[in-house]
Write a protein that binds this DNA or RNA. Structure first.
Lengths: 116, 116
DNA sequence: TTGACATATTCCTATATAGGAATGTAATGT
DNA sequence: ACATTACATTCCTATATAGGAATATGTCAA
């Protein structure tokens, strides 16, 4: 089997760095495609294709205005990823505590466990 | 250009649902590969390959114990993703506020803006 | 209608999988 | 040494890009 489609879910869509850039750029205000092209530094067709992927998974919303299309990040769609990563928060806090403890033991001259 | 390697960064590594499952499973305790195989329901070689990807991007740590290898999630490596998604938190709060406002206006019988 | 502008879509190709099958390798018991 | 257990790695194939080039579509202006 090949890798899952970039349009299968937000996790796959944001795996591409350019798309993360675009989402950041579109987080605050609506922008037209030509502005995104300038900001990201990719050619227009590539930007449109990335926007297509982001739109299919609901990470951006579009609105037409004359010949322009105004895109904006749909932050709500990022929330599930935030929540998934949040489930690990208590674990990285624990890890930091263990590092701190180890440093304190070293300070006290007790010596390390030697676990590589 | 093809898609970036799954080993290029954590974002690409967690795009695969099975790898997210594995990270969740390994978040609390060390587990040996055979336990992961049972828990995830994939065959052993596939699990080993996923673990290899996760290891290369630093999302898991391994330790040998006799013939077993004990894997554990390295939560610290998930933190950058948590922080990236967190930059959108204020925007989804705004969105929720706007939805709420709209609902309140509708309740008051003022009517919507009609913006589709 | 014709032209210009803004954006989307199609075609093409090199690349990177994900999983299945088969095999390689390290550690332990006898 | 040999069988066994526990994993990792290699080989194979169908699939899905990402970007570049070219083209199509949609909108407004005269």
């Amino acid at each position: 089997m090949a890798r899952a489609a970039t349009t299968s879910d937000p996790f796959n869509a944001v795996a591409e760095p350019r798309r993360r850039q675009i989402l950041t750029f579109l987080a605050g205000d609506e922008r037209q495609v030509s502005e995104i092209v300038v900001a990201i530094g990719l050619d227009q067709p590539s930007v449109s294709k990335h926007l297509g992927v982001l739109r299919r998974v609901g990470l951006v919303r579009v609105r037409r205005n004359g010949r322009h299309r105004l895109y904006r990040t749909n932050a709500e769609a990022i929330r599930p990823m935030h929540e998934w990563t949040a489930t690990f928060e208590r674990f990285w806090r624990h890890q930091l505590d263990r590092v701190k403890e180890r440093a304190e033991r070293a300070q006290a001259g007790i010596g390390g466990s030697g676990q590589r």
